[in-house]
Simulated assay, not measured.
Amino acid sequence: MSVVFDLHGASVHFGQPARAVRALSDVSLQIHAGERVALVGANGCGKSTLLRLLHGLISPTEGQVQSEPGLRQAMLFQKPHLMRQSVQTNIALGLWLRGTPWKQAKLQALAALARVGLPALAQRSARQLSGGQQQRVAMARAWALQPQVLLLDEPTASLDPHAKREVESLIEEFASGTEAMTLVFASHNLGQVKRLASRVIYLEQGQVLADLPVHDFFSGPLLQQQYPAAHLFVKGELV
């Protein structure tokens, strides 16, 4: 499998040097095409910072972050940003900004809404939708761009159980269907991690303390023996 992200000693500091907060510290890892990588850990451990680093929203203070040349990627946040426009316009605008003619962008937006099961909401105001519908619109907006990598920051954290299942089902389809996107997602829902991930990265205070296949992370003795902090986190004994 090809390497889509390659990090070497990547660190991220926020604030003035004398009082800088170290959000990530000396992270070295590779993510390959087709992987489903879950980022887990307590609040403030560096999950969101790592996602933003991979997406190019921030730059490393130290070290290197390399991505596959020409890589198409999209990122979804816990609460998607939607404009006070129609659902169709919210999706079409992303395509238009990528250079798609407006008329074609609107047609592709309708196809994207059909892909996530919301074609009837095309002319509704995006901000009047429920939280679950808004997240599915964000999924449609990402899918319309045909990304090779999909980055997700707690995509179902604020949703009710039914909406969570709907969004999670779409994520599963995007990863395993004809799109076959590479997934990197942050989640506090360990059940979701078990269902969606092929690999789990555990972070604590900005450091990667465990990086294991999903089965070994949850079921293998390796976690308890070599990564005791991650083992306590899985057991719910480390907050």
Score class of each variant (00 low, 15 high):
Q66A: 07
F185W: 09
Q85F: 11
W102G: 05
L53N: 04
P221Y: 04
M75S: 06
D211A: 13
R115F: 12
L54G: 13
V3T: 04
E173C: 05
P60I: 12
Q128T: 14
L145C: 13
V40G: 12
A23F: 02
V4C: 05
A18Y: 05
A142W: 12
H162W: 09
A120E: 14
S125L: 13
Q64D: 14
F77G: 00
H8V: 06
S169K: 14
K235L: 15
N43D: 12
I171S: 15
A138G: 05
Q148A: 10
G70R: 01
Q85T: 07
G236Q: 02
G63L: 01
V27E: 01
S11E: 03
G34C: 04
A74F: 12
P80C: 02
R141A: 14
V37D: 10
A197W: 11
V87G: 11
L222T: 12
Y202M: 14
V37Y: 02
A140H: 14
A114C: 11
L54A: 07
Q88W: 08
A38V: 07
L29W: 00
L212V: 10
L196F: 06
M181L: 08
W102D: 03
H8W: 04
V3Q: 01
L50C: 03
L232R: 12
R84G: 15
L76M: 14
L97C: 11
R22T: 09
A120D: 14
A229V: 15
Q226L: 06
